[in-house]
């Protein structure tokens, strides 16, 4: 099994007519960490929703782990790809933390013992082991973001797709989240505006601007190209 993402000539038009992605091609290799950067409205979130088949290309093709994203493969692909939404209040739709982390494993039809073990392990991995019985509404934003990551870790995903994981966090919560991500050995594609996060964690950077891929290269090359960053509304860390 290769935990890869292949996006070929992906174009996506929203029902209202807005072209959110135009001819986007991108590939992420096994265990590679790629950052997806670009201004608000560039199409980052739209692209991420294609990676587990929530949205389907208007034209072009998405392949995950060697399987094309089609209705036949969708169950398998959703088990492989752990997609963490930007706003944890969208991701945590159960009142209680335990039920949210158990949601994925339960839908994989795992036995109860295994579901409970996975919930414990996932909450442990994000440092939230004491919060299984807490009400999500009462958690801080940093805690919610950690639980949101646990809700996909419990599904043992091969690929992590994270939408702006550090947005809105205070410096300490941000640092501990970065350490958490750094400890995970997985294929990872992360949308972010946090250029220090990019420098710390990612080996490759893809710039998405105005629905198109504007640049794709090693982190060192991209972050040292001041003119390129300025052109796309980004700042060097």
């Amino acid at each position: 099994m290769h935990h890869t993402i292949e996006v070929e000539n992906l174009t996506y038009t929203y029902p209202g007519g807005h072209q959110a992605l135009i001819d986007v091609s991108l590939s992420v290799g096994p265990d590679e960490r790629v950052a997806l950067v670009g201004p608000n409205g560039a199409g980052k979130s739209t692209l991420m929703l294609h990676l587990n088949g929530i949205y389907r290309p208007t034209s072009g093709q998405v392949t995950v782990g060697g399987l094309p994203v089609t209705d036949d493969n969708i169950g398998q692909i959703r088990a492989w790809v752990g997609l963490v939404f930007q706003n944890p209040d969208d991701q945590l739709f159960n009142p209680r933390v335990f039920d949210d982390v158990a949601f994925g494993p339960l839908h994989m039809a795992l036995p109860e013992e295994e579901v409970r073990r996975r919930v414990d392990a996932a909450l442990d991995a994000v440092g939230m082991q004491d919060y299984a019985d807490h009400i999500s509404h009462h958690l801080s934003l940093g805690q919610k973001k950690r639980v949101a990551i646990a809700t996909v870790l419990s599904m043992h995903p091969k690929i992590l797709v994270l939408d702006e994981p550090t947005a809105g966090l205070d410096p300490r919560a941000r640092r501990s989240l970065i350490n958490l991500l750094d400890s995970m050995e997985r294929t990872m594609l992360t949308a972010t505006h946090d250029m220090r996060l990019v420098a710390d964690l990612f080996t490759r950077v893809v710039i998405l601007d105005n629905s198109r891929v504007a640049a794709d290269g090693p982190t060192g090359d991209i972050l040292s190209d001041g003119a390129l960053l300025t052109e796309h509304g980004l700042e060097a860390p």
């Binding site: 929530i54 969208d90 599904m155």
Partner: peptide, 18 residues
Amino acid sequence: RVYNAMLSRGYTGAPMQI
């Protein structure tokens, strides 16, 4: 967005519980 989050984690409409 919530429905998308549910689909992402394998929701098919069938109720699941311990």
